[in-house]
Nucleic acid binder design. Structure first.
Length: 459
DNA sequence: ATGTGC
């Protein structure tokens, strides 16, 4: 294996053996040789062997091991010759982030943070197995799956201008509820508007720093402003879709998959019936996730209206777990590609890029660049990335110490489960500043604003 | 991530 340093933060592994293209890693010299990176880099090399892959397999600075494909990876496949793989999307289909902005200043609100997060916690079901009290009918579920955030806004969970500020307007058209199992639909029927667990969160944040005054103003951001972020996905419904199609592919595409270097890279030709079925089911789950974040974002907006009598706007809502049909310019030729972003954020030129950190540090609002279109199919990083596994975290940390540590930083926390507090502690994550600085130095996104948490709701 | 595992 030959790693070439192409620039201070770009590393290229020249293709060898069964690789069809090179692998490219965006990171610094400190981490490229880190042994903990090696598993993820091996996964990236495996991805580079898959049929129809175009240009290279890419890794963002926050890569770590994932199911088959590394988390923090981008892989684009030719629409006609290439594949689609559930492992390239992840189990939490359309896990993503939305940032909503208030006109409030931190000094107007600081005494009420506990009250505010408690209201949110009481309104929105959080934690593993979190459910709403009511269930949607199968007919209504189909409507949600095919219409996403558009469904939510049409049903009074939002205002029409919200839809202008969601990736794909919160509704992917290549979605078909008939491709989703009744089991998945049943699981989703009382999950709309629920947060979930793990790294999912709701954070009340303060705009700590503005890097680009003009763009921040255009986007409605100012220093010390109160904003909030919702990080969640497609809950049990999306998880069931992933599980279902991995099994369907295993049962029916044995011959097609006999050469894959890792069973978890199971895939279907994009243009086959199985590939299309997964694509339409996956997009249905993605629409469910768009609706889910839309509902939660709007419920919190209503809480702000009630307590502070202010109007809240949606800055942007974006996914970091999806495979999308996109047109890209490859060596002067426009190509239709199926771009898998797993733990990677779309970063089209001028588009807001939302990268959350851990609950003790900060999150960033950035902007996509022309360079990102050229270097990584218009993609960027998605978060800090773990340094400690969940089990290790439990062994080394305890929840009251984490709560105290946050308290010292004036961060209020309300969480359903003590083990989640420990598994998601600041110590468990890499430094988000490093990740953001690397992607900015490469030029695939530019910083607009830095957010620091003041109130956190966790599962 | 997940009614937390084959």
């Amino acid at each position: 294996m030959k790693i070439i340093r192409e620039s201070p933060y770009i590393w290229r592994i020249k293709k060898y053996d069964n690789m069809k293209v090179d692998a490219i890693i965006f990171t610094d010299s400190k981490t490229i040789n880190n042994s903990e990176y090696q598993e993820a880099i091996n996964q990236l090399i495996n991805v580079a062997t898959l049929p129809g892959i175009v240009k290279a397999a890419y890794a963002m600075p926050d890569i770590h091991w994932g199911y088959g494909f590394p988390i923090g990876g981008v892989a684009a496949f030719d629409k006609d010759e290439g594949i689609i793989s559930p492992g390239g999307v992840g189990f939490d289909i359309n896990c993503g982030v939305r940032v909503m902005i208030t006109p409030l200043n931190y000094k107007d609100i600081d005494i009420d943070i506990d009250k505010l997060i408690k209201e949110i916690y009481n309104e929105i079901p959080v934690g593993i197995g979190s459910r709403t009290k009511f269930k949607f009918s199968v007919k209504e579920m189909k409507n949600i799956i095919e219409n996403g955030a558009y469904w939510a806004v049409s049903n009074n969970y939002g205002i029409s201008e919200d839809l202008n500020n969601i990736e794909d307007s919160g509704k992917i058209i290549y979605a078909d509820s008939k491709k989703i199992s009744s089991e998945a639909i049943k699981r989703g029927s009382n999950e709309l508007g629920t947060l979930g667990s793990g790294n999912h969160f709701i954070e009340i944040q303060k705009v700590e720093k503005i890097y680009d005054k003009e763009k921040a103003k255009e986007w409605g951001l100012f220093e010390n402003q109160i904003v909030y972020t919702v990080h969640s996905g497609s809950r049990g419904l999306g998880h069931q879709v992933a599980t279902d199609y991995i099994k369907i592919f295993r049962d029916n595409l044995k011959e097609w998959n006999k050469k894959i270097p890792d069973k978890q890279l199971i895939n279907a030709p994009f243009n086959s019936q199985y590939g299309q079925d997964y694509f339409f089911a996956m997009n249905g789950a993605a629409n469910f996730a768009f609706a889910n974040r839309q509902v939660m974002g709007h419920q919190i907006r209503k809480i702000f209206k009630k307590i502070y009598n202010v109007n809240v706007k949606l800055l942007y809502d974006i996914t970091h777990n999806i495979a999308k049909l996109e047109k890209h310019n490859i060596n002067g030729k426009e190509m239709d590609l199926i771009v898998h972003r797993k733990g990677a954020t779309r970063a089209y030129e001028n588009q807001p890029v939302l990268i959350p950190g851990d609950m003790g540090t900060s999150s960033y609002i950035l902007i996509g660049t022309a360079k990102s279109m050229k270097l990584a199919f218009g993609s960027s990083a998605h978060g800090a990335g773990r340094v400690l596994g969940r089990r290790q975290a439990k062994r080394r940390l305890n929840s009251s110490a984490v709560i105290n540590e946050l308290k010292e930083k004036n961060i209020h926390l309300i969480a359903k489960s003590k083990s989640t507090i420990v598994e998601e502690a600041p110590e468990v994550y890499k430094n988000i500043e490093d990740i953001v600085n690397i992607i900015e130095k490469i030029g695939i996104s530019k910083k607009i604003a830095k957010l620091t948490p003041v109130g956190v709701v966790k599962g």
